[in-house]
Every structure is written in structure tokens, then in C-alpha cells.
Design a protein around this nucleic acid. Structure first.
Lengths: 228, 228
DNA sequence: GTCTATAACGTGATAGAC
DNA sequence: GTCTATCACGTTATAGAC
């Protein structure tokens, strides 16, 4: 549900809701359309926009190349759809925790660690995908996201600032604190391709390491807060 | 000096030393060649291999397109050169600290924070460049690096393991510890394009935040080590 | 909806004059 | 060494048969 709010934010005109309505009417031909979309997600996440050829996607989906343009008018439109969903997933996970007014700061950190690691374990390519495309493509997508309200003016940041005032946190800048928390959670997924060579760990071993981090990150963050 | 060891590792045949010898003989024509290389570095770091056109590089360098192929036979050869130097810089910084047998673990962490943040402030695009190219291009480059000896079997890791044995560190897995340290240092640079939108900070403000981190990271790491 | 064939275009690279 | 003009190729997208 929340995801759709983000998608609505990002989609020009009302293409998205039209698409959804269309989908629910005729369920027969979801199969191939969904196959293409899943393949596109896989390949785009792995190689980025510029490096993927529509032929790669067609091959991955086991469909004829022309069908890609039949269902999604162009490579760019297909890409936009994948990117919008990636951004929606990424920020939905974050926002639903950061802006909950009923949880404590401590609980929020636990939830970020748990939810994000679970989410990223399913979609490990998303952070590098988003960040590298923002770097290239300019800032089109990111500007569409209400990132300031969702993150900077979040309940999480406010709660941290009161902790600073109460003397329970030594680092006065909430941005530094946020970078620390996100770094602990997200960085391993970004560095995974290098880490797997560094330590010769496969995907299963990596996931195990991440599971261990779910419990440790709140402890580490707590220690950092009162450090100094 | 150390940089050249890495470059030697990475370069097929002896192209690199030939290149260096050639360079020192005739210094006149360094200018345009160097201009192209600097432009290539800028554009490749920003957009990655697939998204950059040789025309972009030529334009950035203010030279004729044909000169690019005259000096560097192909786009790929030019790219390889840029990537090799990026990897060399990245791992040289790391290795020179991690494998110093005369510094304590505590000092090493201070040096990593200081050296890496200084290095990345000059070359902020390198981490995302390296990681995204490894993700796409397969593992060609990274396999050429003696990453295990340099990182996994480093003095740094050994020192951490003895701290664990002495009961001074609660996290038994040195990989987790390494991810924490590198995450604190490197993650902000990877996330910069997103952070600058999140908090509306420009490049100068970002650098200031990183300078503050140089002092804080050792304190944070220390706190994390004895946490739990 | 699905296919084959092909058009239209962008890009890397080179030939050849200067 | 530097330039203009151009080739050769790969890729996106579509026309049109089935």
C-alpha cells in the first residue's frame, strides 16, 4: 500500500494506475509481461541501464525481442518502471520505521537492522543499482522523492536530537549518526562483490554474516552513541 | 612506489613499464596525452564504462576524437588504465596501513580514517566506480589483486584476533569488524549523491562532515569493539 | 500475441590529408 | 601530432506476416 504512494509520487501522469487497472482486468497475459519485467529487474540491477541490452533482457526472459517493445514501449520506459519500484521499496522500508511515532529510538534502530537486512537479502543488488544510476543519470528520480520529509524531518531524527539534548548521545549532528547506522546496514551489500573475493565467501555464507549483524548492529550503535 | 607494485600486478605483459620509460624520454607530448587521461578518469569515474562515450571524453579534454585512439588504441585500453590506477590507489592506501608491523591496532584505525578520508576527498568517485564496474564487468580486475594477502592475512586482522583472544573485542569475526570500519569510512562517499539531496549539502559541506569523521571514527570503533 | 526481417540511429575506430 | 570524413558494427525499435 505504502509502496504505491511512492510509485504515485514518481510516475509522471497517471500511467501507473492505468497499468494496475489494466492488469486486474485480464489476468491471462500477465505471464509474459511479468516474465519480461522480472528479467529486466534482474539484468538492470546487475548491470545498470547503459550496460544492459534489450537482447539481454529478452534472452533472460526467454521471449522474443520484439515482445519487449510490444509490452513496454521502450527500454527507457521499462527501466523507469524498475527504478521506480526499487526506489519505492528502498524508501518504503526506511520511512515506515523512521516515521513511526509509537516506537522508541532504540526500537527503531532494531527495526532498521532487521527489516533492511531482510529486505536487502532478498534484493541485494538494489543499493548499488540505485546509487550508481543516480551518479550517472543525474538526479531525475531522486528529486521526485520526498526524501527530506521522509528522512531528514523524520521522527527518528527528532528523537535522536532529544537524546543529544538529554546528553545521551555525544555526536550532535544527526546526519553523521544516520550515516553510521545506514553504513552498518547497507555497506556490506554494496561491497559484497568485493568481499566475496576478499574472504572467499559464497552467497549463503554472506547471508549468514548478515543475519548475525541483525542482532549486533543495535548493540554497536548504542555503544557508538555514548562513546567519547 | 608501492602503487607501481599493484599496477605491475594488474598489467598484462609489460605494457606499463614501457609506457613509463617512453614517458620520461619525451616530455613534450605529455600534455595532450595527460589531458585525455585526466578527462577519461573524470568521465569514467562519474558514469562508468558502458555509459561513457569516447566523444564525452574527447569533449571533456578539449581534443579531437581521433586523438583518443591515436594515444590509447581503444576505449577499452584507456578504461583499463584508469581502472588499474583506481584499484592501485584504493588498495595501496589500505595495504600500507593494514600491513604495517610497527603500529598498534588503535593507530591503524586512526590511520585508516585519516588516510582514506583524505584520499577519498580527492577522489570521491572511486569507490562507487570500482564497485559498480566489478558488479557489471565480472571479476576480471579484482582477481588480479592479491586481495587476500593484503587484507585477509594482514597484520591488522592478526592484531584484531589477538584482541579477541585477550577479551578486548566482543565480535569474534574479523570480517564483521572490517566491514564496520570500512563502512564508517567509505559508505558516506558511496552515498554522497543521495545524501546531498537528503540534507541539501554541497560538496564543501560534505567535505567538512568527512573531516569531522576523521576524529570520530576511531572513537566510535573503539566503543563498538568493547560493546556487548 | 508472437514472430522475422529490417529500418534508423549511435558509437568506436580508422583512413588519409595536412 | 592533429584534423575531417567516413566506415563498420551493434543496438533499439518497428513494420508487417502469421
Amino acid at each position: 500500500m505504502f509502496k504505491y504512494i511512492f510509485i504515485y509520487y514518481l510516475c509522471p501522469r497517471n500511467e501507473f494506475s492505468d497499468k494496475m487497472a489494466k492488469k486486474e482486468l485480464k489476468e491471462k497475459d500477465i505471464s509474459t509481461e511479468e516474465k519480461i519485467k522480472e528479467a529486466a529487474k534482474l539484468v538492470f540491477h546487475k548491470k545498470g541501464y547503459a550496460a544492459t541490452r534489450t537482447r539481454d533482457i529478452a534472452e533472460e526472459a526467454n521471449i522474443n525481442l520484439a515482445l519487449l517493445n510490444y509490452y513496454f514501449r521502450s527500454k527507457e520506459k521499462l527501466f523507469t518502471m524498475i527504478m521506480v519500484e526499487a526506489l519505492a521499496g528502498f524508501f518504503q522500508q526506511l520511512s515506515s520505521v523512521l516515521n513511526n511515532t509509537e516506537t522508541s529510538l532504540e526500537t527503531k534502530i532494531e527495526l532498521i537492522a532487521q527489516n533492511y537486512i531482510d529486505f536487502l537479502t532478498k534484493e541485494p543488488g538494489i543499493p548499488l543499482f540505485i546509487l550508481s544510476e543516480i551518479r550517472n543519470n543525474a538526479t531525475f528520480f531522486i528529486e521526485k522523492i520526498p526524501i527530506q520529509e521522509v528522512v531528514l524531518h523524520s521522527e527518528f531524527i527528532k528523537q535522536y536530537q532529544t537524546e543529544v539534548q538529554k546528553g545521551n548521545a555525544t555526536e550532535p549532528n544527526p546526519i553523521q549518526f544516520l550515516m553510521n547506522v545506514l553504513g552498518l546496514v547497507v555497506f556490506p551489500f554494496i561491497a559484497q562483490p568485493m568481499l566475496s573475493h576478499l574472504a572467499k565467501i559464497d552467497s549463503a555464507q554472506f547471508n549468514q554474516l548478515m543475519q548475525q549483524r541483525k542482532k549486533q548492529i543495535p548493540i554497536w550503535v548504542k555503544a557508538m552513541m555514548s562513546a567519547g
